[in-house]
Design a protein around this nucleic acid. Structure first.
Length: 357
DNA sequence: TCTGGGGTCCTAGGACCC
DNA sequence: TCTGGGGTCCTAGGACCC
């Protein structure tokens, strides 16, 4: 019954996109930098992806409308995201980090979980490893990160967020519950805005409140998630660090610069998105059979509609035809369209096209 | 505040089969 | 004529992650 206590690291790059931009452009150093949608003198649509610490001092945050960022900080350097560059840097960082782990799990473009149980006999050794990782990333990529160390993924993740930037926070298993207790519930993994609101309505504000709440009432209100949250609040999380396998879906979507009334314009964009999606599936040698379209009207009302084909395909024409059929009922003369998207899923791997490679 | 784009996972109802 | 239970697949919506 005694299973070995794990030691898990969570690594989180500091304001990743803007940090990469600052590294590539030393002239930005010391200035507020914002990566995201084009602000268009305060009239832009879209949001902030990342802001550096100078921009954060002015109140600019990830996910904020770019128009609001412009009001708060008109003097910032505004940049469009350069994803090819961020992905390239990310891959090199993941290669560095992976070497230190028995088990490794990438978490988005700039985060990773490491299980180092077999390499660190205690938290002192774990601390040494964490410092080595920070040092190697700094030397090789000139970027800083924040690391959390804990007995499971949840605690490690909350810990990495505790001290930033360039932080290192270690939470031993016997300290986990006390560490979490004073923090707001929103800090927990999987507790977003909606769940936070529902918890608040029950009088639960901190993780400590959650830990002391009746778990059966939580289960009633939140189902499986309620049970899970109560465990997390007490610092318990048995989920494994595991390498992700292949993608489950590939999608592209676009928000129009202005809301669109003309069906032809929308359908043309749908064709372009379909082309981009099949380009991606072809490059990964995937065949799909489920097609989903997404439409968002000017009032933000959003619908998805999907169809599973009788056959697997990777052809642009099949996708375009199916996507058009799915979208058609949503194109109404009395409704302006803000966004459309195309997604494919239910993959199988194709035959190796060795002659083409 | 006026809300991107890329994903994953869960739920719930209905169809269909044994 | 009325009625099981289980399993799988599909669809639509929603919450959450970075």
């Amino acid at each position: 019954m005694s299973e070995k206590k794990r030691i898990i690291l969570h690594i989180d790059m500091d304001h990743f996109y803007t940090a990469v931009e600052e590294r590539e452009h030393p002239e930005y150093k010391g200035k507020p930098v914002v990566v995201g949608a084009d602000p268009k003198q305060g009239k832009g649509r879209g949001v902030v992806s990342t802001s550096n610490y100078e921009a954060r001092k002015a109140g600019v945050r990830s996910g904020m409308p770019i128009s609001r960022a412009w009001k708060l900080c008109p003097g910032a350097v505004y940049l469009p995201p350069n994803f090819p560059l961020y992905i390239e840097v990310s891959l090199r960082i993941m290669d560095i980090v992976r070497k230190y782990a028995d088990k490794f799990e990438r978490w988005g473009i700039d985060e990773a979980f490491l299980d180092i149980t077999a390499r660190a006999k205690d938290y002192t050794e774990a601390e040494t490893i964490a410092k080595q990782i920070k040092q190697e990333i700094l030397e090789k990529e000139r970027l800083t990160c924040s690391i959390g160390v804990g007995p499971n993924k949840l605690v490690a993740k909350v810990a990495s967020d505790y001290q930033k930037p360039d932080g290192l926070t270690i939470v031993r298993d016997d300290e986990a519950e006390r560490f979490l207790a004073p923090l707001p519930v929103r800090k927990l993994l999987w507790v977003g805005r909606k769940t936070e609101e529902k918890l608040k309505a029950l009088g639960i504000n901190t993780i400590g409140d959650l830990a002391h709440y009746d778990p059966s009432v939580l289960a009633e209100n939140f189902g499986v998630m309620g049970t899970q949250m109560h465990l997390m609040a007490r610092g318990i999380d048995r989920s494994e660090v595991e390498q992700r396998t292949g993608v489950k879906s590939i999608s592209h979507e676009t928000t129009f610069e202005e809301d669109i009334k003309d069906a032809e314009t929308v359908l043309k964009a749908l064709n372009t998105l379909s082309e981009e999606v099949t380009k991606e599936t072809l490059s990964q040698n995937l065949f799909f059979k489920t097609v989903t379209v997404k439409v968002r009207y000017e009032n933000f009302e959003t619908h998805t509609r999907s169809k599973t084909l009788q056959f697997m395909t990777n052809r642009t024409q099949d996708l375009q035809k199916t996507a058009r059929e799915l979208l058609q009922p949503y194109l109404r003369s009395d409704r302006k369209v803000r966004l459309i998207g195309v997604r494919v899923s239910s993959f199988i791997k194709g035959e190796k096209q060795t002659t083409l490679l």
